[in-house]
Design a protein around this nucleic acid. Structure first.
Length: 559
RNA sequence: CGGGACGUAGCUCAGCCUGGUAGAGCGCCGCCUUUGGGUGGCGGAAGCCGCAGGUUCGAAUCCUGCCGUCCCGACCA
């Protein structure tokens, strides 16, 4: 196939778009791959859609390879299904009505719909099943950003596994994980599978696939010894030890007027901020109980971890709730004397800390866990730069990353409320054990660009490049250019032929922006010897070849 | 949802403070020139200055409200 640039819609731009921040956003727009319609809503232009489809095809092949079956479920979904699983309350969910007033939703993912179809499974003999589709997801994101990185509508490959039991789920889960690793490799991106937070998907276990990049919504935490990697939301790190003041036999009350922040408190008392504690009251959504989360003064609370410990939903308490529960203003709160449940970060297990006295304007020195108060000890802090690995003591590194995929062990979270059951060998009816596995091809594209570009444009991994070879024809060399394109086409390559009547500089600049793996140039020099220049986009390596050996060389370059 | 910035030609932006005929570069159209890294020249087209209201003799410019976009935070299956 030979595509002629003179007839295609490839609107490249000379300047970075004014509203772009991330590399992938800038380069995908400049290269004429995508255009924004509205915040978080993007059109894939012809070139971008070619790349998207290549990513899709790789995913499809790897899904098929593990026996997953492709189908297609609708976007528009009766709200009833979501009411049954309780996900209809998620703020990101788009809701609408049909003309007769019936409620519908636009799914965030398709667990409900797939569980709905799983109701046709009757016997354990029909299990396991692996199903997937590529379908549009809509999410009313509070803040779309970064081009394709965070959007309000996108196509997701989502797969669902149906199994008899947890052992079966483990097998399905593992199959998908292996397929995912192959997909990243074949798409030419680096992505790390790390433990993640299941969030509102529910379920017991989940892994994020994080592609390190210059921009992204996630933070990948890795140990320098490479035996530990996790999403920041769930990662554990060991912070530096505090410099404790002299030990006290009992807590000592001290007036700290106006010290409502850790900085002002530490400065006022002349203590290490790491030797102070920070009290964060949370109110349980279910019964309004106020829970005190206590972290070290220099740390931040990881809400997701706290919620995991509580095993129920909770939100930061309001000022009124705080006064009612503690009898003091925020800024002077502490665990001593508080009668409600307390969750203490593990960094506060040893030593004596400064804590709020539950008396506005006063703190306590020398507060000790166990002696002065009791609580559930857990890891509820956000790791920080400088922390060391909990397993080996190695230095932890932090990188921003794009979440290109996420896999979940759902268990019966969806099958139970939707009555997706089967009759097991022993004659009893059981809910199907489910897993779900998602990939965003658009994010794979963004990650590929983030990880592979230079100052002139994108350097596409060969497997997902819009075309294999970009033939640049300079004025006067049209005949050689056509022959070169024909030879490459005959050799089985996808060829983009730049037959436009433009200056060489513009054509080269566009070729760099588009980022095809191999560039073939036919120019004046070709008229003398009939040879063309072959240049590898990634390495810049260049050679002159006759048309006969062109196909072979291009194949090497593309490989 | 909180904080901040921005909205003027297809794109990137100036003009706004200090109110008085709508600007530049690139792109686009025509002609000439040039032809291995965004060429040079001549001519041309192109704007509800985000929207609405207000102040004023007069508003891109000042005031108010709204809308939109981006960034930080919150949020994020």
């Amino acid at each position: 196939m030979i595509a002629r640039a003179s007839q295609l819609f490839i609107p490249t731009l000379r300047d970075d778009p004014a509203d772009a921040e991330s590399i992938s956003h800038k380069l995908l727009v400049r290269g004429g791959f995508i255009r924004q319609v509205s915040a978080g809503l993007w059109t894939y232009l012809p070139l971008g859609w070619r790349v998207h489809r290549k990513v899709e095809q790789i995913i499809r092949e790897e899904m098929d390879a593990i026996g997953s079956q492709e189908l297609l479920a609708p976007v528009l979904t009766p709200a009833e299904l979501w009411q049954k699983t309780g996900r209809d309350g998620i703020p990101e969910l788009f809701k609408l009505k049909d003309r007769s007033g019936r409620d519908f939703v636009l799914p965030l993912t398709h667990e409900e719909t797939f569980a709905f179809h799983a109701r046709e499974i009757q016997s354990y003999k029909e299990l396991p099943q692996l199903w997937y589709h590529f379908q549009t997801k809509d999410r009313d994101e509070p803040r779309p950003s970064g081009g394709l990185i965070r959007v309000r509508e996108f196509i997701m490959k989502d797969s669902y596994s149906l199994d008899r039991d947890d052992a079966g789920l483990d097998v399905s889960f593992q199959k998908n994980r292996v397929a995912y690793e192959k997909i990243w490799e074949r798409c030419g991106i680096v992505a790390h599978g790390v433990e993640a937070e299941p969030g509102m998907m529910g379920g017991s276990e989940s892994f994020d696939y994080l592609a390190p990049s210059g921009s992204g919504q996630n933070t990948l935490v890795t140990c320098e010894n490479a035996d530990y990697a996790a999403d920041l939301e769930i990662a554990r790190g060991i912070p530096r030890a505090p410099e404790f003041p002299a030990r006290l036999a009992a807590p000592e009350e001290i007036e700290t007027p106006g010290a409502t922040t850790i900085e002002s408190l530490a400065a006022q008392l002349g203590v290490d901020s790491a030797a102070t504690s920070k009290a964060m009251p949370y109110t349980k959504a279910a019964d309004g109980t106020v829970v005190l989360a206590l972290v070290r003064g220099d740390d931040r609370l990881e809400e997701a971890k706290l919620l995991a410990v509580l095993r129920e939903d909770a939100r930061p308490s309001t000022e009124e709730e705080i006064r009612a529960a503690f009898g003091a203003d925020p800024g002077s709160l502490g665990p001593v004397g508080f009668t409600g449940p307390i969750v203490v970060d593990e960094t506060l297990r040893e030593g004596q800390f400064v804590a709020g006295a539950n008396r506005t304007g006063w703190h306590l020195k020398g507060v000790e866990l166990g002696r002065d108060f009791k609580g559930t000890v857990a890891d509820i802090r956000v790791p920080r730069e400088g922390d060391v690995c909990p397993h080996c003591g190695g230095k932890l590194g932090f990188e921003t990353a794009i979440e290109v995929g996420h896999v979940f062990k759902l268990g019966t979270r969806y099958s139970a409320p939707l009555d997706a059951t089967f009759v097991d060998e022993d004659g009893t009816e059981k809910p199907i054990v489910m897993g779900s596995y998602g990939i965003g091809p658009g994010r794979v594209m963004a990650a590929a660009v983030e990880q592979s570009h230079d100052e002139n444009g994108i350097v596409w991994p060969a497997s997902i490049a819009p075309y294999d070879v970009h033939v640049v024809v300079l004025k006067g060399a049209e005949e050689v250019g056509e022959q070169a394109a024909a030879a490459l086409d005959a050799a089985g390559f996808e060829v983009l032929l730049d037959d436009r009547d433009l200056r060489p500089g513009e054509k080269f600049a566009d070729a760099d922006l588009l980022g095809c793996p191999v560039r073939v140039t036919a120019g004046k020099k070709s008229l003398d010897d009939g040879m063309v220049d072959v240049r590898n986009r990634a390495t810049g390596e260049e050679s002159r070849l006759d048309l006969a050996s062109l196909g072979k060389k291009a194949r090497d370059g593309a490989a």
